[in-house]
Design a protein around this nucleic acid. Sequence first.
DNA 1: CACGATTAAGTTGTGCACAACTAAGTTGTG
DNA 2: CACAACTTAGTTGTGCACAACTTAATCGTG
Lengths: 159, 159
Amino acid sequence: MTAPHPPLPDDAELLRLDHQICFSLHAAARAFGGVYRDALKDLGLTYPQYLAMLVLWEEPDPQPVKAIGERLRLDSGTLSPLLKRLEAAGLVARERSAEDERSVVVRVTEAGEGLRERALPVPRSIAAASGLSLQDARTLRGLLERLTESLDAAQAGER
Amino acid sequence: MTAPHPPLPDDAELLRLDHQICFSLHAAARAFGGVYRDALKDLGLTYPQYLAMLVLWEEPDPQPVKAIGERLRLDSGTLSPLLKRLEAAGLVARERSAEDERSVVVRVTEAGEGLRERALPVPRSIAAASGLSLQDARTLRGLLERLTESLDAAQAGER
DNA sequence: CACGATTAAGTTGTGCACAACTAAGTTGTG
DNA sequence: CACAACTTAGTTGTGCACAACTTAATCGTG
């Protein structure tokens, strides 16, 4: 599709590369998971639970499950039990919305706000573990976002 | 740690970026999963099962579970049931090694070899879905590999 | 040779991801 | 207004990932 290169035909190299990329991607995602597991152990949160709390901490107002799912790219099949566990841990409260009774809004409890303080050092330890320069981090994020967009579009097209 | 940039102090930007990266990384990994799910549906394989078959197809000889786990960065807790499902599907056979009876070697059956042909077009459809240029694919793979290495090293250091 | 340490695979339990489905509420249109 | 289409959560079932543990075989050292 693009540039010349001697050792392999572009086509073959791209195939191999794509292979290695999805491979590396999974490996990297799991490696991140491991580092977060360590960093979050004391808080009693898993990584996806932490992500959900981040979304909730971001806004002062309670947020519907739908909105959380859109931010995290997760459906209710994943979020419902996750949020129930956060509720069981006392970090959030779930209530049917008054305006639209289909919707359930999730609110951070006082304990959940308290946890926020203790979670503050987490991003720094992750950043340190990642070992990326600011430059590389920007490049990587950009590529990942474009990649996800393409993949989602391709998948939507298949259906 | 590196270059100048006005809007945010480097430090704060790096924190935010790392956040977004692990976020994008998970999103991209899951998006890949979705595309593979479609591509592999007809073969009756999940994405991790496909990866295991790739490792087995790569070598003519049967491979011990250990070796597969090292290639895929997975432990027996994940691989044992996965390989059992592949065996139930008739794609592989598992036998205790004669030399070392602790070890179980996994062999591709005739049906498993047959599937190989049908799996040939998969990488191409994935490459198309990724929408990456050869250049970007190389950059991405490089960054992901460095990232995983750093994360693994950091985690090993924690323990 | 004996026996503790190590290694390989498997098992169990917890949690995430997602497809397929259900239940209940809301909206749009005739 | 009635009712079909849609939306939002939740449930169920399957599979992956991983920690902690068990079992059985092998290795190393005295």
